[in-house]
């Protein structure tokens, strides 16, 4: 469990980092918090020939509200979100999820954007990014593009990010007070990767009817997934205990679960049903 050999670069500017990526993209890897990458290297499951450490680049740890969106820089650490970073449902949802991310020492190092780039299927940030419709700003030397979260996650640990690209910013919509966000996850020990999680967001109109609904599930498939049928079932009516229960049941049946020795498929569905209902109920109880 010692890392294989690698070269180490510590660029002082984003431009320098992009130039290194342009030159070494295929064999290079960005090091931000390193909380997933370094253990993976110690197990020799990842063996990048070069690490490009962006921690010495000034000004990348921002997290600010701007133009109705929350803009999150590549060095904003998980711990930053433990208290709401912005007033309103978005900041509260992030704070609610942050406490589930591993343990305190890891949260002081790991980064929001790093989680999105790593794309662990059980990442809280990835699930929220999909649920709320994050936009991901990607840079490469001489170019830039914006990728919506819906097009970002491709499979386990695989995203739309090209080898020569840097995830330079994630932005989330700052939801208004008519939104109700919920979060629930299940794990066997505090801080473990979730066996299932649900992120829910409902917009209620003046009559208390659900005008918009988003439900995302994490930890249950190769990528976070949207439970669209479950969300659609809630539209146009006031949520009731029965309608939330029904939506949770739809969510539990509407995906292909990953299975392993410890988590059989039907158990994963049990968890999705419970987490979805609890997230929805929790969001409306507040």
């Amino acid at each position: 469990m010692k890392c294989p050999p690698f070269d180490y670069h510590a660029p002082r500017s984003q431009a320098e980092a992009l130039a290194l990526l342009a030159r070494h993209g295929e064999e290079g890897k960005i090091l931000a918090g390193g909380q997933s990458l370094v253990p993976t290297m110690a197990f020799r499951l990842a063996r990048p020939a070069r690490l490009i450490d962006i921690n010495r680049i000034a000004g990348l740890d921002y997290c600010r509200a701007e133009g109705g969106r929350l803009r999150i820089g590549p060095l904003a650490r998980h711990a930053r979100f433990e208290r709401p970073v912005a007033p309103g449902p978005t900041g509260r949802l992030l704070a609610r999820a942050a406490e589930h991310i591993a343990h305190a020492p890891i949260r002081t190092r790991g980064t929001f954007c790093g989680s999105l780039a790593h794309a662990d299927p059980a990442s809280e940030w990835c699930c929220i990014a999909l649920a709320l419709g994050a936009d991901l700003r990607v840079l490469r030397e001489g170019g830039e593009r914006l990728v919506p979260a819906a097009g970002w996650f491709q499979s386990v640990f695989t995203t739309a990010l090209a080898p020569d690209e840097l995830l330079a910013e994630a932005s989330l919509p700052l939801l208004g007070p008519d939104w109700r966000c919920g979060f629930a996850e299940f794990n066997r020990r505090a801080g473990d990767f979730a066996l299932a999680m649900a992120v829910t967001a409902l917009r209620l109109d003046a009559a208390g009817h659900v005008a918009e609904a988003r439900i995302a599930l994490g930890g249950v498939a190769g990528t976070p997934i949207l439970a669209e049928a479950a969300a659609a079932s809630l539209l146009g009516a006031s949520p009731t205990p029965d309608s939330l229960r029904a939506a949770a049941a739809i969510a539990a049946e509407g995906f292909e679960p990953t299975e392993d020795a410890q988590v059989p498929a039907d158990y994963r569905r049990d968890l999705v049903r419970a987490m979805t209902r609890r997230a929805l109920e929790g969001s409306l109880a507040a």
């Binding site: 469990m1 010692k2 294989p4 050999p5 020799r44």
Partner: peptide, 9 residues
């Protein structure tokens, strides 16, 4: 230990 692990591989 790193070199030993490289060789073992």
């Amino acid at each position: 230990p790193e070199e030993a692990e490289d060789i073992a591989e």
